[in-house]
């Protein structure tokens, strides 16, 4: 079986995978990092979004061997080193950006990519960017509010 090496959240790791192993499986089963969730496994829901070389991708729809040598960022690497939440995570907590939390890792990774490219997105831009992230609980307003707040803007409609 091929051995792949990746830098995940700043740590060099390697794993033995099959060619058919998708990145989400390599992260969760080979590396024990279960923060990345698999909702649909058919590239529809976005729960599995991670960053590969700085780009948000659906890790269920990329082979692990394609990430050989890549820098990967997952939800596990987002909090500060003392364990406190980063500004986007904190905003999700403060603005009811999650209920069951299943979609949240993908939402946070997608929002992180958005705010890196576009530090002050409009509500429409946020909703457009979340096109590939499905949430069954919140109705999205709390998520949109959290991303508005994380970018230093006032949410248009309160979620409560």
């Amino acid at each position: 079986m091929p051995t792949i090496s990746m830098n995940v959240n700043g740590i060099s790791v390697s794993a033995e995978v099959e060619n058919r192993t998708v990145l989400s499986t390599a992260l969760r089963e080979n590396l024990g990092m279960t923060g990345t969730h698999v909702g649909c496994d058919t590239s529809q829901c976005g729960a599995c979004v991670v960053h590969v070389n700085g780009k948000a991708v659906k890790s269920c729809t990329m082979f692990a061997v394609e990430a050989d040598g890549a820098e990967v960022a997952t939800i596990e690497g987002q909090a500060h080193s003392d364990g406190s939440l980063n500004v986007i995570q904190q905003a999700f907590q403060d603005h009811h950006g999650l209920q069951c939390g299943f979609c949240t890792p993908g939402m946070i990774m997608t929002a992180t990519a958005l705010l890196r490219d576009n530090p002050k997105p409009t509500e429409t831009e946020i909703r457009d960017h979340l096109e590939g992230n499905i949430c069954r609980c919140t109705g999205y307003q709390g998520i949109v509010n959290a991303i508005m707040a994380a970018s230093g803007q006032k949410p248009a409609i309160a979620a409560e």
Binding site: K55, V57, K58, H129, G132
Partner: peptide, 9 residues
């Protein structure tokens, strides 16, 4: 096309 993650791949 699709969504941002699809467009990145």
């Amino acid at each position: 096309i699709g969504d941002p993650a699809v467009r990145n791949r």
